[in-house]
Amino acid sequence: MSKIHVTTQVNGDAVEFLCAPDETLLDVLRDRLNLTGAKEGCGTGDCGACSVTIDGRLVASCLVLGAEVEGSAIETVEGIGTADALHPLQRHLLEHAALQCGICTPGIVVAAKALLLQNPDPSEEETRYWLAGNLCRCTGYDKIIRAVLSAASELRGENA
């Protein structure tokens, strides 16, 4: 199969890669670009572990083809914060002990960030429905929801 040449932007950096026509964006990120923050929990769009944004739009990268992202801007968990400069969401997840195994965490960070961009003041219910596509088997979601709500309030400039 001949490969497709794709030029795109990942976490702010220009990136070029070659991929097979049927290769998913998730495989491209993980296998070709060494960005293993997005995880494959199902490969069928049901778990959210592979969440990334394309031009700000939240997607399951296992359902997107690498070839589709020509010319767009992708953000993965690796682009959201660093150890020295955590995004408030990441910090609140840590402070609330909202991760156990942590395999779902990158997807939650990406999805929750997308939520707060379009709705800075979500209710608990809105948060639960937004994150319903991100499976977590460890936590029962309680601490995740609390972390997202308190990060939201910090981002709104309220006292967390």
């Binding site: 293993t36 002990a97 965490t105």
Partner: peptide, 23 residues
């Protein structure tokens, strides 16, 4: 007490290496 877990940082930033992450 409730200190922040030392491995947490790698997990919220996507650096932690799980089974399928090593090549």
């Amino acid at each position: 007490t409730r200190p922040i877990r030392p491995d947490g940082l790698d997990k919220v930033t996507g650096k932690a290496m799980f089974g399928a992450d090593k090549s």
